[in-house]
Amino acid sequence: MSEAKVRVIIVEDEPQIRRFVCDALRREGCTCIEAGTGREGLDAAASGMMDLVILDLGLPDMSGIDFIRDLRTWSPLPILILSARAAEQDKVAALDAGADDYLSKPVGVGELLARVRALLRRHGQRNEARPQHRFGEIEVDLTRHVVTRGGAEVHLTQIEYRLLAVMLANSGKVMTHRHLMQEVWGPGHSEQGHYLRIYVARLRQKLEADPALPQHILTETGIGYRFQT
């Protein structure tokens, strides 16, 4: 982490899990603030000067979703969810409520730090406009609406282009199906989940080297998609 002292709150009722998360974060040069309950976590966040919240969804005093809603009423702090695998619905609810990313337990140190770094980086450049994007052999120029693959122009339909633009804008972040549907088709299309999946498949056909094993447009099964460069 480039900044001198990044301050991270870990909201988790298990002291052993807090301990290893903090150990890992301290190694990265972060300051770790431990909170055993949702209340403590919100109080710590309210004290200001925070950069990130790591949140366990199973808190003793409040649901993780309520925590996120509460925090989101007054803070844009990035939130990273820790949750058991096989709890996809909880993760989707948390992401839709305003969380930024999630990790499934058990989680390794490397994975945890990679996600924390990515979130902090995204948060840092939140307001920067980036008209040009480059990933693999694809180049996207958002100002001219041109997508090229290895120099040759790729024709995208309007919806495909809009979908790609939304993904680029949320690069590195997990996007739920609902979020993407709303961004691309507008509200009221949540019944037509297959549209999204079909258009993602088409985008992969046009942009991925091997559409069955995509490198950029990744499926987060049961949750949504993640774009990575």
Binding site: E14, Q16, I17, R19, F20, V21, D23, A24, R27, G58, A84, K105, P106, V107, G108, V109, G110, L112
Partner: peptide, 21 residues
């Protein structure tokens, strides 16, 4: 599920911290 997974999660994480120390 909760009582067995939680200590295992700690175990994985704490051991990993040692590995990468």
């Amino acid at each position: 599920s909760h009582d067995l997974r939680t200590p295992l999660t700690s175990l994985v994480g704490l051991a990993d911290v040692l590995v990468q120390r």
